[in-house]
Write a protein that binds this DNA or RNA. Sequence first.
DNA 1: GTCTATAGAAAGATAGAC
DNA 2: GTCTATCTTTCTATAGAC
Lengths: 204, 204
Amino acid sequence: MTTGTHESDHGPRRRDASATREAILNSAIEAFTRLGYDGAGVREVAGGAGVTAMLVNRYFGSKEQLFAEAVDRSFAPRTVVSNDPSELSEQTATRLAARTAPDADNLDPFLLMLRSAANPRAAEIMRAAIEKHVGQHLAGILPGPEAALRGDLLLSLIAGVWLMRKVIATPALTGVDQGTLTRQLQDLMQVLVDAPQDQTTSNS
Amino acid sequence: MTTGTHESDHGPRRRDASATREAILNSAIEAFTRLGYDGAGVREVAGGAGVTAMLVNRYFGSKEQLFAEAVDRSFAPRTVVSNDPSELSEQTATRLAARTAPDADNLDPFLLMLRSAANPRAAEIMRAAIEKHVGQHLAGILPGPEAALRGDLLLSLIAGVWLMRKVIATPALTGVDQGTLTRQLQDLMQVLVDAPQDQTTSNS
DNA sequence: GTCTATAGAAAGATAGAC
DNA sequence: GTCTATCTTTCTATAGAC
């Protein structure tokens, strides 16, 4: 019935709409990060939340809309790129090396992106989320000209390292000493942080 | 029939095993590059070769074995990374900027890798192919210590740029002037080409 | 050497009971 | 608010005809 003084309902485990929705969303972030957009099915997501597949579509309309919400939440906290330009390269290099270490837990927005990039609709959704959450932020804290370009190149570098170290898992990257990798990454990132000399776009 | 003086066969278009196999393999490279391992079906591959899906499994055993052969052939020619260490950063930066341009044709091993990375078996196959075709080669031509690491970081940078510029397609990277992008990439790659100062791995 | 036809599993999404 | 049951499509792979 639509109400009731009895709170000891019989069948289903929960009767709390917002809690169920939240559980599905968290399960979706985990599943999309681990398996990618195409690899994670609605049954998989539902199972992780302790509900049936039907509820996923009931609360989110479609797998695509569920993915959009999962991406938006996954990308919102910026836990890799530093906020302080003066120590951006050092902090970001350290974090990247630590979070792509072989024993690190794998619940990262970059992994979600890498494993979902093959799907064109997923790529569109992620492009919008990157623009919204990190692109504009990075362009704002980088000094000098071409800040948006240099910010996106920093994201490219981070994504590429994540791909080759954690997804492809090449021996040289999985076996490297943490300090050695951090130093190399910091040297690379510093090139993007330092403002380029202003030269005309001639291709001399 | 098993033989025959008649060459005007009725039904099928071709009766040439090696030509059919080759057509399937070429179609597979195109399909896997465009749609990724999970996105490309055997029907898609077969259609591109002008045959039926059944022949794909007949010639290659399974989709996974077909993928392994397609990867091996796609990765074999090194058309991005230069052979000459003295001009490696310049040539590689120029080629990367050109081949990720918005109007460039999209038949590249890096695209195949990016769009297939979500599948664990595909990732394993590609890791082996990278080791075989490019990893050891790069480690050989880079001077100084940690050559294998610096080579894999160069691959990471290339893959990351390919991802953000051609798959995710961020505005700053799709709209950038070619010369500006090339200069930035060359500055980055030069850091990896130059031999690092030998310091102990202390993390001070 | 290639085809049609189909088996068997799994996907996204929906109808209707309680 | 959540379930079971099912529709429809698509996938890989195989059997058997010609």
